[in-house]
């Protein structure tokens, strides 16, 4: 094909040949797209690792179309060396992500394989030791919200403490409600809105409240319209204004913290 003839001379020898891609099961069009996403990461020996990355994904059980999708979402995967990639996959398995979950996780969030072992270990240790999640809970957290591994740990701690202390939610319910999928602002905003409307109370030391709090799941894992009609019983206009007011309140708060820190 003229396509491969045109391109071949410019390419370093290590870039997978069209033939090798076809041998792996890709069609010509798919191969073309692979070259295209490869061209986006022309550094760190991307081309050198391309073959091993593609192979590893296929070994993981992805079909060519899914491999293409995963690598197009995250071309950085091409820059990961073979050995590292394997280590990271093994580590996730060790963390309890069994076949099926592991594949779904990678398909949904391929970036997980670009994160160093050390980073993942720090986050896992944080969840275990600072937040006292069980290993099974940590596995579920990683499965449901893998992006957590790239979050700022300070922010993460703040989010956990907010839900734990301010909302009075225990670890098991946090995991069930997938809180780490939400940003702190989303959680705070919905919670504060309910609280100020008189529909949510922080439990006292004995875990008691005067009213029955709505389930965390019904607060966080629903779209805004459902949240407003089913839980908050408020208009979209009110909530929209409330969000703007909150953003300004918190801005002020952060500024205040800033000055405290400088003292």
């Amino acid at each position: 094909r003229s396509f491969s003839l045109d391109r071949a001379p410019e390419k370093p020898v290590t870039e997978p040949s069209l033939q090798s891609l076809v041998d792996m099961g890709f069609t010509c069009t798919q191969a073309e797209r692979i070259y295209e996403s490869l061209s986006k990461v022309r550094r760190g020996g991307a081309a050198k690792n391309a073959t091993s990355t593609l192979t590893a994904l296929i070994v993981l059980g992805f079909n060519p179309a899914s491999v293409l999708k995963v690598t197009e979402t995250c071309p950085q995967l091409y820059t990961v060396r073979e050995a590292q990639l394997q280590q990271r996959i093994d580590n996730l398995r060790k963390l309890g992500l069994v076949e099926g979950s592991l594949q779904r996780m990678v398909a949904h969030y391929p970036q997980i394989l670009t994160v160093t072992l050390k980073t993942v270990k720090i986050v896992v240790a944080f969840l275990r030791e600072k937040c006292l999640f069980t290993s099974q809970q940590v596995t579920n957290i990683l499965r449901d919200s893998p992006a957590i591994v790239l979050e700022d740990l300070g922010q993460l701690e703040y989010k956990f403490q907010y839900v734990y202390f301010r909302m009075g939610i225990k670890q098991a319910e946090m995991v069930k409600s997938k809180i780490f999928r939400c940003t702190l602002d989303e959680i705070r905003c919905r919670h504060c809105f309910l609280e100020r409307r008189g529909l949510y109370q922080t439990p006292d030391k004995k875990g008691q409240t005067l009213i029955i709090n709505p389930k965390l799941d019904s607060i966080l894992n629903v779209d805004q319209a459902t949240f407003l009609t089913a839980v908050a019983k408020a208009s979209a206009e009110e909530y929209e204004i409330f969000q703007r007011l909150m953003a300004r309140e918190w801005q002020g708060e952060e500024k205040e913290y800033g000055t405290v820190d400088n003292d």
């Binding site: 809105f193 100020r196 409307r197 008189g198 529909l199 019983k233 408020a234 409330f242 309140e249």
Partner: peptide, 19 residues
């Protein structure tokens, strides 16, 4: 006020507690 204002109270409450 929950008794006095009924349905209107939650909206008034959040407003009173906001800027």
């Amino acid at each position: 006020y929950a008794v006095q204002l009924g349905q209107l109270w939650p909206s008034a409450r959040v407003a009173l507690l906001s800027e």
